[in-house]
Nucleic acid binder design. Structure first.
Lengths: 234, 234
DNA sequence: CGGTTTTTTCACTGCTTTTTCACCGCGCCC
DNA sequence: GGGCGCGGTGAAAAAGCAGTGAAAAAACCG
């Protein structure tokens, strides 16, 4: 699935300059030109990353930052002409992940996007959980050492759950990430896939241990045991 | 728990300049002066973050970066005099999380450290109050460590109360925020939800400690203890 | 092209939540 | 003391949601 980037900038020139470069890298790009439409677009598109200008009509970049952070951990890179120490510190302390001063070098922006996305999607190569092993690099799932055959959609949904393991993911989020933003309310799809996943992965599909339903909120991948591979910060 | 930072730089001046500032922020600081000792120190200290210079004897910064990445996901901020596009892109693509060109502003470095640590350590703004813990990002409420299941409306009302904790919120305000402006005088809804919240959250629902009624005004969420959240502002 | 797997659609069921409504108790002011 | 506003209580009706099964449609593969 293509990664989606939302550009928020009131200067159409900037948007026009960046967009094709991002598309060339294989990202899907959408844009908003003021703070309020940015938040609406954010909810609708469910992007994997936000490129955010600071100076904007309606609602400033800092405000957008805070609003997004209240509802999501989606990475944000602020791109602004304001290069003062105070601006940078304020943005970073209000939830931005990186800060780039205009004018910037395109390849640097791309590299910073890669770095931020790499960390946020943190595909820990191996996730082990009782009798399940999920190898995200090979797209393989083992259950009690036996490989489980998953269809592409099943795997994509599982990956989405595992990416936020121990956290709740709404059906809406899953549909947006796996099928695309335009399917946002086709949450029926998820029901079916979740069921098939449970049949294939759960010891007792009727009483799930891994794929837990958080009533009226969404689903949660329950990883009781700590992840064993690739030790992160000790 | 104090967070540990490993500084890797062959210039003792830099180390001497940064170290006290980091200590003042409450970090534990250790240092290494070349690539090889850096890796040894990394394994020994197990830092939460690495500040890495590029030009060094024995093993360059890029090499250190790769080696660290092979064994850990510990965040790395590269700090270097080299400001060329190619250097930045190379560092970021080899596992660095951020890149700061010397000379840098100290407060910017500190802000970038906070930003990177925040993301790597899932910072959850928690509201703690006696035996209640409210995790606003994950939509989870714990009572004496046990998760409490709240319905969407219950959670929304609680969030509204908590947002103005220790201040009074009128029933009218709650209805407007949770149900929408057109429901402004359906204050009956609130009664029911408040009751259910008390049953679920209060030790003695008949004599509320948290969700207090302010007669003829509204409700107030009583947060005796201070809020505990992640260290974001210095 | 035919057969198989996968995805989509839909109707149904049991359960939880939300809404609605009637009533109770308390304090207050006239 | 009786009416009145306000907040708490309880229960039943209505609505919404998740799980299930099964069949149609689409994609895949030889």
């Amino acid at each position: 699935m293509k990664q989606r980037i939302l550009i928020v900038d009131d200067d159409p020139g900037i948007v026009a300059a960046i967009t094709p470069a991002l598309r060339a890298q294989g990202y899907e790009v959408s844009a908003a030109h003021d703070g309020e439409t940015a938040l609406a677009a954010f909810r609708q598109v469910g992007p994997h990353l936000v490129l955010l200008d600071l100076v904007m009509p309606k609602l400033g970049g800092i405000g957008v930052c805070q609003q997004i952070r209240q509802q999501s951990a989606t990475p944000i890179i602020v791109v602004s002409v304001k290069g003062a120490e105070a601006d940078i510190v304020t943005a970073l302390d209000n939830g931005a992940d990186d800060y780039l001063v205009k004018p910037f070098r395109l390849s640097e922006l791309l590299a910073r996007i890669r770095a931020v996305l790499r960390r946020s999607r943190a595909p820990q190569p191996l996730i082990q959980c009782a009798d399940l092993v999920i190898d995200t690099t090979r797209r393989i799932v083992l259950r009690q050492g036996q490989p489980v055959s998953l269809t592409p959609i099943e795997y994509a949904v599982l990956a989405e759950l595992v990416a936020h393991r121990n956290g709740v993911v709404t059906a809406r989020q899953i549909v947006q990430r796996v099928w695309g933003p335009q399917y946002a309310d086709a949450t029926d799809y998820v029901k079916g896939v979740i069921r098939r996943l449970r049949v294939k992965l759960e010891p007792d599909p009727a009483h799930p241990r891994y794929i837990i339903t958080e009533p009226h909120v969404g689903y949660r991948f329950n990883d009781a045991s700590g992840t064993v591979s690739s030790p992160s910060s000790p």
